[in-house]
Deep mutational scan, measured.
Amino acid sequence: EEKRQVKQVAKEKLLEQSPNSKVQVRRVQKQGNTIRVELELRTNGKKENYTVEVERQGNTWTVKRITRT
């Protein structure tokens, strides 16, 4: 359940930055209360990979860091 929520948060964050792209989740890793989500962003056939680190704060998820990989 929490992985599902985190995927959603990570996707939304990337789509905010580039709204007309397609996002696909590649991998989800958990480390303590930080969850790392690896995503693939496609814009006009151009692929970019991103890693989004999401942290739990109380009962909400906040995006800590977005890295292009």
Results as ranks from 00 to 15, higher is better:
residue 33 N to P: 10
residue 1 E to K: 08
residue 31 Q to S: 10
residue 15 L to A: 03
residue 32 G to D: 08
residue 15 L to I: 03
residue 31 Q to R: 13
residue 66 I to N: 01
residue 7 K to V: 15
residue 68 R to Y: 06
residue 16 E to Y: 02
residue 29 Q to V: 14
residue 17 Q to R: 09
residue 23 V to E: 00
residue 8 Q to D: 11
residue 42 R to M: 09
residue 61 W to E: 00
residue 63 V to A: 06
residue 50 Y to C: 05
residue 35 I to S: 10
residue 3 K to S: 13
residue 53 E to I: 12
residue 40 E to A: 09
residue 21 S to H: 03
residue 3 K to W: 15
residue 18 S to G: 02
residue 26 R to S: 11
residue 5 Q to L: 11
residue 26 R to A: 04
residue 4 R to I: 02
residue 31 Q to K: 09
residue 8 Q to L: 08
residue 33 N to S: 11
residue 22 K to G: 05
residue 48 E to W: 04
residue 61 W to G: 01
residue 47 K to F: 11
residue 42 R to F: 15
residue 29 Q to F: 13
residue 2 E to H: 05
residue 12 E to H: 05
residue 37 V to S: 00
residue 21 S to T: 03
residue 59 N to M: 14
residue 13 K to Y: 13
residue 7 K to C: 14
residue 48 E to F: 04
residue 54 V to S: 01
residue 14 L to A: 05
residue 49 N to E: 11
residue 45 G to S: 11
residue 21 S to W: 02
residue 13 K to P: 02
residue 56 R to W: 12
residue 43 T to I: 04
residue 15 L to Y: 03
residue 2 E to C: 09
residue 63 V to Q: 00
residue 26 R to E: 04
residue 55 E to I: 13
residue 51 T to A: 11
residue 2 E to N: 04
residue 41 L to V: 11
residue 48 E to R: 04
residue 10 A to R: 01
residue 24 Q to Y: 15
residue 60 T to H: 11
residue 42 R to N: 14
residue 31 Q to C: 09
residue 65 R to I: 06
residue 26 R to T: 11
residue 49 N to C: 09
residue 36 R to F: 15
residue 4 R to P: 02
residue 51 T to K: 05
residue 16 E to T: 07
residue 18 S to V: 13
residue 3 K to Q: 14
residue 54 V to L: 08
residue 11 K to T: 08
residue 30 K to W: 15
residue 63 V to E: 01
residue 10 A to I: 14
residue 6 V to I: 14
residue 64 K to M: 13
residue 27 R to G: 11
residue 38 E to P: 00
residue 46 K to N: 12
residue 10 A to Y: 01
residue 3 K to E: 15
residue 54 V to N: 00
residue 4 R to W: 12
residue 53 E to A: 06
residue 15 L to Q: 07
residue 27 R to K: 08
residue 42 R to S: 12
residue 19 P to H: 04
residue 65 R to C: 07
residue 42 R to A: 09
residue 35 I to N: 04
residue 60 T to F: 11
residue 30 K to N: 13
residue 17 Q to A: 07
residue 7 K to W: 15
residue 19 P to V: 02
residue 42 R to C: 07
residue 12 E to W: 03
residue 26 R to W: 07
residue 5 Q to M: 10
residue 37 V to N: 00
residue 15 L to K: 05
residue 4 R to E: 15
residue 65 R to P: 01
residue 28 V to W: 07
residue 2 E to L: 12
residue 23 V to Y: 01
residue 29 Q to E: 12
residue 13 K to D: 01
residue 60 T to V: 14
residue 35 I to E: 02
residue 21 S to V: 04
residue 31 Q to G: 06
residue 2 E to M: 12
residue 56 R to D: 03
residue 58 G to W: 06
residue 38 E to L: 12
residue 45 G to D: 09
residue 40 E to R: 06
residue 7 K to M: 15
residue 28 V to M: 14
residue 39 L to F: 06
residue 28 V to N: 01
residue 44 N to H: 12
residue 33 N to L: 09
residue 40 E to G: 04
residue 64 K to A: 13
residue 60 T to Y: 09
residue 60 T to S: 13
residue 10 A to G: 03
residue 22 K to T: 14
residue 26 R to H: 07
residue 28 V to C: 08
residue 48 E to M: 07
residue 51 T to L: 11
residue 59 N to I: 10
residue 64 K to C: 11
residue 62 T to P: 01
residue 51 T to I: 14
residue 1 E to C: 08
residue 8 Q to K: 14
residue 67 T to E: 10
residue 61 W to K: 00
residue 51 T to P: 00
residue 61 W to C: 02
residue 11 K to V: 15
residue 52 V to I: 05
residue 12 E to S: 05
residue 30 K to Q: 15
residue 44 N to T: 07
residue 68 R to W: 05
residue 7 K to N: 05
residue 25 V to P: 02
residue 28 V to F: 09
residue 64 K to I: 15
residue 8 Q to G: 04
residue 7 K to P: 03
residue 8 Q to A: 08
residue 59 N to F: 09
residue 8 Q to S: 04
residue 12 E to L: 06
residue 7 K to T: 15
residue 19 P to N: 02
residue 14 L to S: 02
residue 48 E to H: 04
residue 48 E to K: 05
residue 56 R to F: 08
residue 7 K to H: 06
residue 27 R to H: 12
residue 22 K to F: 14
residue 1 E to N: 07
residue 52 V to F: 02
residue 53 E to Y: 14
residue 8 Q to R: 07
residue 34 T to G: 06
residue 6 V to Y: 05
residue 11 K to A: 12
residue 53 E to C: 05
residue 22 K to Y: 09
residue 55 E to Q: 09
residue 2 E to P: 03
residue 59 N to E: 13
residue 64 K to F: 09
residue 20 N to I: 04
residue 4 R to Q: 10
residue 28 V to Q: 04
residue 14 L to W: 02
residue 16 E to R: 03
residue 22 K to V: 13
residue 48 E to Q: 06
residue 38 E to A: 08
residue 66 I to G: 01
residue 61 W to H: 04
residue 44 N to L: 11
residue 58 G to A: 10
residue 57 Q to L: 11
residue 51 T to D: 07
residue 28 V to P: 01
residue 45 G to Y: 11
residue 22 K to P: 02
residue 32 G to T: 04
residue 54 V to W: 01
residue 67 T to S: 11
residue 5 Q to E: 10
residue 61 W to R: 00
residue 28 V to G: 01
residue 62 T to F: 10
residue 43 T to S: 10
residue 44 N to D: 12
residue 19 P to D: 01
residue 58 G to K: 07
residue 17 Q to N: 08
residue 20 N to E: 08
residue 64 K to Q: 08
residue 1 E to D: 10
residue 68 R to S: 08
residue 30 K to I: 14
residue 24 Q to E: 13
residue 27 R to N: 10
residue 63 V to H: 00
residue 60 T to G: 15
residue 44 N to V: 08
residue 45 G to H: 09
residue 60 T to K: 08
residue 37 V to F: 02
residue 55 E to Y: 09
residue 68 R to D: 05
residue 15 L to G: 02
residue 69 T to P: 06
residue 54 V to M: 07
residue 23 V to W: 01
residue 46 K to L: 12
residue 47 K to M: 08
residue 53 E to K: 03
residue 2 E to W: 15
residue 11 K to E: 07
residue 28 V to Y: 14
residue 20 N to T: 07
residue 69 T to I: 13
residue 63 V to N: 00
residue 45 G to Q: 11
residue 52 V to K: 00
residue 41 L to T: 08
residue 56 R to C: 07
residue 17 Q to K: 09
residue 2 E to G: 04
residue 67 T to Y: 15
residue 3 K to N: 15
residue 27 R to C: 06
residue 23 V to I: 07
residue 23 V to C: 04
residue 55 E to C: 06
residue 24 Q to L: 13
residue 39 L to W: 01
residue 17 Q to T: 10
residue 11 K to G: 03
residue 43 T to R: 04
residue 10 A to M: 02
residue 13 K to V: 15
residue 59 N to V: 10
residue 10 A to W: 02
residue 7 K to Q: 15
residue 22 K to S: 11
residue 8 Q to E: 13
residue 16 E to I: 04
residue 60 T to D: 14
residue 32 G to F: 06
residue 18 S to D: 05
residue 57 Q to C: 07
residue 33 N to A: 11
residue 5 Q to V: 09
residue 39 L to Y: 03
residue 17 Q to M: 15
residue 49 N to G: 10
residue 23 V to G: 01
residue 4 R to M: 09
residue 50 Y to E: 00
residue 23 V to R: 00
residue 66 I to E: 01
residue 46 K to D: 09
residue 47 K to C: 07
residue 26 R to D: 03
residue 8 Q to I: 08
residue 35 I to P: 00
residue 65 R to K: 13
residue 13 K to G: 07
residue 55 E to F: 06
residue 7 K to E: 15
residue 5 Q to T: 11
residue 21 S to E: 01
residue 47 K to A: 07
residue 23 V to K: 00
residue 10 A to E: 01
residue 6 V to D: 01
residue 38 E to K: 12
residue 48 E to S: 08
residue 32 G to E: 06
residue 65 R to H: 11
residue 15 L to T: 02
residue 42 R to H: 10
residue 9 V to H: 03
residue 48 E to N: 03
residue 7 K to Y: 14
residue 65 R to G: 14
residue 41 L to N: 01
residue 62 T to K: 10
residue 42 R to E: 14
residue 32 G to N: 06
residue 20 N to F: 07
residue 18 S to A: 08
residue 5 Q to Y: 10
residue 43 T to H: 10
residue 21 S to M: 02
residue 15 L to M: 07
residue 52 V to W: 00
residue 43 T to L: 10
residue 6 V to H: 02
residue 26 R to G: 09
residue 30 K to G: 14
